[in-house]
Simulated scan of single mutants.
Amino acid sequence: MNPTPSLKPLPWLRHTLIAGWAALSLSAALAHGDVVPQAVDTSSLPQLGAKWLDANPYNPASPARGEALRIGTSAYNQNCARCHGLEAISGGISPDLRKFDGDCTGLADAAKKEACFKEMDDYFLATVRRGRVRDGRVYMPPFEGTLSQEAIWSIRTYIETRREP
């Protein structure tokens, strides 16, 4: 008799592992969802007009900030979370948006800090409106035409609340 037990896997274990892997793969594929940008209802926000604003109108002093945050949270989950992660915590596929303007928050000089946030607003708006394409590969789809200015600034409002300290 051989004192060493057999290391052959049990047949039921192999089938269980394969079934588990298949279920996990299917759920991951279904969870990714539709990659087409989804429109957002912003009718409860003051309309900003056709001309794109240079800075987020839903700043902390804005009376519409609470509503913009509510809409932005939902809009982010519908359009951004699949790549940038739930609650803006990236899993590594796309940039972690909690760190989006992190270089600005640490600036001591108020004028430099304001200029930095303005530059980040410009970058954010351009990126979301036109998307990001490199070497013919789409890294981020353009959202202009699907998302209104109100929706995009609402998403920016949500991202601002997710900043890392």
Rank of each mutant, 00 (worst) to 15 (best):
M120T: 09
R129I: 04
R134E: 14
R82W: 04
A29E: 07
A31M: 06
I18S: 05
G85V: 00
P95M: 11
P37G: 01
D34F: 00
A108G: 07
N77H: 10
L86F: 09
A115Q: 13
P141Y: 05
R137E: 15
H84G: 07
N77M: 12
V40L: 01
G49Q: 01
F100Q: 13
A28I: 07
A61E: 13
A81T: 00
Q78S: 10
A19H: 03
A126M: 07
A22G: 08
E150N: 08
S62I: 00
A29C: 08
Q38P: 04
A81Y: 00
G106Y: 10
T16G: 14
C116A: 05
D101T: 04
D54I: 11
E150I: 03
T127R: 11
A55F: 14
G131I: 00
D54Q: 11
H32N: 10
A111R: 13
S94Y: 02
M120N: 15
S62E: 01
A68S: 10
N77A: 10
V128H: 01
L26F: 05
G85D: 00
G131A: 07
L53V: 03
E67K: 15
G136T: 05
D34R: 03
K113N: 11
A88M: 01
E87H: 12
A110F: 13
P46N: 03
K51G: 05
D109Y: 12
L30S: 01
D54C: 07
A31Y: 05
D41F: 04
E67R: 15
H15R: 14
R132G: 11
R130K: 15
Q78N: 11
I89P: 02
L86K: 12
R132N: 13
V128A: 07
G92W: 07
N79Y: 06
V133N: 12
T105F: 11
P141H: 05
P60Q: 05
T146Y: 03
S27W: 09
M140D: 05
K51D: 11
H15F: 14
Q38V: 01
E144F: 09
D121I: 04
G33C: 01
D109A: 14
P95H: 10
E67Q: 14
K99N: 15
S43H: 09
A39Q: 07
Q38K: 07
D41Y: 05
Y123T: 11
D96H: 09
G33T: 02
R82P: 01
